[in-house]
Amino acid sequence: MVESMPGVKQRPLMRAVVYVPLILTAIYFLLPLIVMLLTSVKTMDEIRAGNLLSLPATLTFEPWAKAWDKMGGTFTNSFMIVVPAVAISTAVGAFNGFVLTKWRFRGSELLFGMLLVGCFIPFQVILLPMARTLGLLGLAGTTGGLILVHVIYGLAFTTLFFRNFYVAVPDELVKAARIDGAGFFTIFWRIILPLSGPIIVVSVIWQFTQIWNDFLFGVVYSSGETQPITVALNNLVNTSTGVKEYNVDMAAALLAALPTLVVYILAGKHFVAGLTAGAVKG
């Protein structure tokens, strides 16, 4: 960037004009995270002393241990929900995308249009009908029920991702495979899926983040033992009995945010690459 702006490179003043606001903005955005981190390793006494930004006088990991104690179970719950939900919605999305682009049928465009509407339905609207449906299916309050809700809600997005990716894959590839004797599933499994790496990454990150961070479905459709971590965090922070343990709250919040952070750090750069991936060069 600097090379492409020779004026900036030459004049230190111009440089400062660019960098100072950038650094300030970065600090502004990082500040909440820093406060949370600092608070989570301080003792309650020190927190009560009042300086949010001061470094901890005595470093303690007790709040983290306490938070894990209270939330560890729901951490596992969330994984039990997220992993199958992400896997199923991504797999079905890939399959849908394949059919909608390479195996079109009468009305497939209309079907895709209707699926797209799914992206715009607010969560609140389906709360009651979905509760009734889960009840009828005998899945109310179960992990399976939550997985089902997330899969259904995620399908619109994953289908959109894969459909748009496969539109750019040349149809001739499928024709060639058909002449070579490959059938529907062989083409999907041997030809199309191996090309889908970038868009699978996109779908997994998107779905993981969405489902992990979901609160509304979690609070409505889960019962005590199947609670996801977001609901547990809310319950922890919102307790009105006893002393408010800010350090534990912060540690718990960080704990709840950690997996999405890790996923994004590990695969984030593939996310952008996958979204902008163009046609597959044959």
Partner: peptide, 20 residues
């Protein structure tokens, strides 16, 4: 007959080689 049973082979404009 489906394409695979017609005893034909085809060469495409975009070559359509399997990229993977």
């Amino acid at each position: 007959l489906s394409p695979k049973d017609r005893d034909i082979a085809m060469v495409f404009q975009s070559y359509a080689l399997y990229p993977n």
